[in-house]
Design a protein around this nucleic acid. Structure first.
Lengths: 210, 210
DNA sequence: TGTACATCAGTGAACGCGCGTTCACTGATGTAC
DNA sequence: TGTACATCAGTGAACGCGCGTTCACTGATGTAC
């Protein structure tokens, strides 16, 4: 993939090489995905977003039909990223324990832009159109399944129910930790959430079994 | 407190009776408290808010220094209301069980405007100025204490830690329930959250004790 | 008793601003002849 | 080889709109003389 040079075949010195537009689109989505999680969807404007991607705002609508259209894509990417991270943590570290530590670690609290979109945007997305929420609706079960896979016991339904509760507990705990300004206290909120998640996992069949 | 009549002493036929302005202010705060929880702070404008309170927008700044000023008051009122409701539920019904049922009931999920401001606004408020978050910071410990009061065991610190985890679990569960569009599934999310909260309460000393 | 004035909650026009969105344009390309 | 043209990602001025905020004003009151 030469950057510049001769003009044989014309592809190398093309102003926009093949796949350029798709790459630009992905760059916009990546920037949006981060900024929406950091500042909320409503607080992020198209012009600023495009500037973050080293573009001017006018070109936005050759990539997306509307801001709402971008929101769906950005949320989808954010959730897929988080799912990937959690899956990796579960595989490389100790199963559910890896997920819990990754989700409730102080770095996740401190960098919402790289973190879980559910914790960052749940309440706001609940007020967006159904078409936008679809990106989230499709992926919520994957979070639940990922957790359920690593729960003990033979009753799959109990594992699923327990996984929902654990995920809810982690989401709420992370949000509480972000609201507490004192860092020592906030760390403790995270630690308590982790203890709770482990306790729920251990008692999965006992509490959620039929 | 006559509404109209003679003019002896002049107070009765005053255009604005004593306490009128304070009553108007309270009306604005009450409307804001509800609408912020329903639609988010960013999505609610001053003009619409004042119209909801049967006023025109111009008078807003004789009551509040800024929109941000109102946000603090509205959040404080919302939290105090919710604290009062949960306290009553705990006293009149069965302690923690009353709190869990009140917090995770479908009506709470379906009417965020009358519900917990933490669940409705946590992520958004985390991005507001520290002065605004102060209203929330002061009240979070009261939620924790209220729950801790109704937990079993002699270790007060364990009860506090457990209460934080239970509150986080309830907040996150309510938000997940609001994201799930299918009502049967959403009801199940709430039920699972309640099971989890009870399980955490029962194992309070075991899991959070020193 | 009657007139002039201070008070003050609420009104509504107006302010600058940033939003999402549109559109005529730019300029570097490959293709046609 | 040289000229004319189509393509198209990205540009930037402009659109109407609603935002938070300001301010001169209204009108009903109580008070002063």
């Amino acid at each position: 993939m030469e950057k510049s040079g001769g003009s044989s075949k014309g592809l190398i010195t093309m102003r926009y090489e093949k796949g350029h537009k798709e790459a630009t689109r992905k760059r916009i989505v990546a920037v949006a995905s981060k900024r929406f999680r950091e500042d909320g969807v409503a607080a992020v404007g198209i012009a600023g977003l495009m500037a973050n991607a080293d573009l001017t705002h006018g070109g936005f609508y050759s990539h997306f039909a509307s801001k709402e259209d971008l929101v769906g894509d950005a949320v989808a990417e954010a959730l897929d990223d988080t799912l990937g991270v959690l899956r990796t943590e579960a595989e490389q570290r100790g199963g559910l324990e890896g997920i819990i530590r990754a989700y409730l670690r102080p770095a996740h609290r401190d960098h919402p832009g790289e973190g879980c979109a559910v914790a960052a945007l749940a309440a706001e997305l609940a007020r967006h159109p159904a078409a936008t929420r679809e990106a989230l609706s499709q992926r919520l079960p994957r979070f639940v399944e990922l957790i359920a896979e690593h729960l003990p016991g033979s009753d799959a339904e109990a594992r699923r129910d327990c996984a929902v509760a654990i995920f809810g507990a982690m989401v709420g705990t992370l949000q509480l930790a972000r609201l507490v300004s004192d860092s020592v206290e906030s760390d403790r909120v995270l630690a308590n959430g982790a203890v709770a998640a482990r306790a729920l996992a251990t008692g999965c069949q006992e509490h959620f079994g039929a």
